[in-house]
């Protein structure tokens, strides 16, 4: 195949040198790595810094303001009221615990489901099947989020397919509520977890597994001591997707969550119905703190650098 031009032995045509301005620029750049770095980083950092960090900082500052309830305009006088409300209110504690619980469960389920299927794809399936399986895993991503959530609503309803499947074994549908929310969210984010885990497993050379076998390593020991440490960063990468996407979700819980609400609902209601951006911003601090905590823990394991 000719796609991979890096194959040794293949000739790479190098254009003849011309003393153009571009060439001189190129030379001076290669002599000044710092300059090169600055040029490379300036565009993305300007983008992320100016757009994202400024927006985020502005939002956090808004948490320190209040809103006039009838005109809906923001009054820019400094107060900690919103933050105190959020920290001390029992409502926010209950909902936070519920939301984090759901997000953790979703992440756990996704990892447990992703590991065997990704392992099968990467290490057992033939190249042809590997390709088919990747397509099979990616395809559901294109059936809109909302359509899939409503499909689960139908599956989990009283006389839905789930009930029909488990009834012969004496089971019954969990109905609408937190279990349904966990199932639906785990379903929605599964491809985002399978893909990095699969990519991570692919990077584990088969020879290493064979070496472990040759040295007498049992299958489980090999998996635990050789494979798991190698794909740990990939698992973390996947978990960031499923955890954070669950943490901020407010649509799925509306569709299948029964009467429950999550942090996203509180933020959404305060922005939309109540038009109270300062309080919404204060509530938004909760997931921000949680995510930063999560990233800090993850960083300590060294996974972030290998993300």
């Amino acid at each position: 195949m000719t796609v991979d031009t890096a194959s040794p032995g293949q000739r790479i045509p190098v254009p003849p040198h011309r003393d153009t301005l571009a060439r001189r620029g190129s030379i001076s750049l290669s002599r000044h790595p710092r300059l090169r770095l600055t040029l490379m980083l300036s565009a993305p950092l300007l983008w992320l810094g100016l757009i994202y960090i400024v927006a985020l900082a502005a939002l956090l500052i808004t948490a320190l303001w209040t809103v006039d309830s009838f005109t809906g305009t923001i009054t820019r006088s400094w107060t900690l009221d919103n933050i105190i409300t959020v920290v001390t209110g029992s409502l926010y504690q209950t909902v936070t615990v519920r939301t984090v619980g759901v997000a953790l469960l979703v992440t756990l389920i996704d990892i447990l489901v992703a590991l065997p299927i990704a392992f099968f794809m990467a290490k057992v399936a033939s190249p042809r099947w590997q390709r088919i399986l990747v397509i099979a895993v990616l395809m559901p991503l294109w059936a809109s989020y909302l359509v899939k959530a409503y499909a689960w609503r139908s599956v989990l309803s009283q006389n839905g397919i789930f009930e029909w499947l488990v009834a012969p074994f004496g089971g019954e549908t969990p109905g609408y509520g937190l279990p349904a929310t966990v199932i639906t969210l785990a379903y929605l984010w599964l491809p985002y977890v399978i893909l990095p885990v699969y990519a991570g497993l692919e990077r584990v050379p088969d020879s290493l597994l064979e070496a472990s076998g040759d040295l007498g390593g049992k299958t489980w020991a090999t998996l635990r001591l050789v494979v798991l440490p190698m794909i740990w960063p990939a698992i973390i990468a996947g978990s960031i997707f499923s955890f954070s996407l669950s943490l901020g979700d407010y649509i799925t819980v509306n569709i299948v969550g029964g009467a429950n609400q999550m942090l996203g609902n509180l933020v959404y209601t305060n922005v939309g119905a109540a038009n109270n951006l300062p309080l919404a911003a204060a509530i938004a601090l909760i997931p921000i703190v949680i995510i930063f905590g999560y990233l800090a823990v993850v960083r300590r394991t060294g996974a972030l650098e290998n993300l």
């Binding site: 006389n159 109905g175 009467a259």
Partner: peptide, 20 residues
Amino acid sequence: NIGEYWSDYLKSIQAFETGD
């Protein structure tokens, strides 16, 4: 005693049709 709150009609229609 609430099973679910509704705000869009599709949800309400489905729930009454299925008996949820």
